[in-house]
Computed example of a mutant assay.
Amino acid sequence: MRYGMNPHQQAEVISGGPRILNGEPSMINYLDALNAAALAQEADAYTGHPAAASFKHVSPAGAAVAGEIDDTAARTWNVPASASGSLLSAYVRARDADPKSSFGDVVALSRPVDLETAEFLSTVICDALIAPGFEPGAADVLGRKRGGRFLLFETDPTATPPARERRDVLGVALEQDRDTADLAAALPDGLDPAVRTDALVGMATARYTQSNSVVLVEDGSAIGIGAGQQNRVDCVRLAGAKARIWWLRRHRSVDALPRIEGMKRQDRLNWQIRFAGHEMTRGQLADFTTLFGAEAAARYDDQTWRDAWMQELRGITLVSDGFLPFRDNVEHAAEFGVSTIVEPGGSTRTAEVAAAAHEYGIAHVQTGLRLFHH
Rank of each mutant, 00 (worst) to 15 (best):
L21E: 01
L21F: 01
L21T: 01
L21I: 09
L21R: 06
N22D: 01
N22M: 00
N22G: 04
N22I: 00
G23M: 03
G23R: 09
G23C: 07
G23Y: 03
G23V: 03
G23I: 03
E24L: 13
E24N: 09
E24V: 10
E24G: 00
E24K: 11
E24W: 01
P25L: 07
P25E: 02
P25I: 00
P25W: 09
P25Q: 10
P25C: 03
P25G: 01
S26H: 03
S26R: 06
S26V: 01
S26D: 05
S26G: 05
M27H: 01
M27W: 13
M27N: 00
I28N: 12
I28W: 12
I28E: 14
I28C: 13
Y30H: 14
Y30V: 10
Y30W: 15
L31Q: 09
L31S: 08
L31I: 07
L31V: 04
L31H: 06
L31A: 11
D32G: 01
D32T: 10
D32M: 08
D32A: 09
A33Q: 07
A33T: 04
A33V: 04
L34V: 12
L34M: 09
L34P: 01
L34S: 10
L34T: 08
L34E: 04
N35Q: 11
N35T: 05
A36N: 03
A36P: 04
A36M: 07
A36T: 05
A37K: 11
A37W: 12
A37M: 15
A38Q: 15
A38N: 14
A38G: 05
L39P: 04
L39S: 06
L39G: 00
L39W: 02
L39E: 01
L39A: 09
L39Q: 07
A40F: 08
A40R: 00
A40L: 07
A40G: 05
Q41E: 14
Q41H: 11
Q41A: 15
E42I: 10
E42L: 14
E42N: 12
E42S: 14
E42G: 12
E42K: 13
E42F: 10
A43I: 10
A43C: 13
A43F: 02
A43Q: 13
D44K: 06
D44N: 13
A45L: 14
A45E: 15
A45Q: 13
A45N: 11
A45C: 03
A45P: 08
Y46A: 15
Y46L: 15
Y46V: 15
Y46F: 10
T47E: 02
T47N: 06
G48T: 05
G48S: 06
G48D: 03
P50V: 00
P50I: 00
A51I: 08
A51S: 15
A51F: 07
A52P: 03
A53H: 03
A53I: 10
A53K: 05
A53R: 11
S54T: 11
S54V: 13
S54D: 15
F55D: 12
F55C: 10
F55N: 03
F55G: 01
F55R: 10
F55K: 09
F55V: 09
K56E: 14
K56N: 13
K56V: 15
H57P: 00
H57W: 06
H57G: 09
H57L: 03
V58K: 02
V58G: 00
V58E: 15
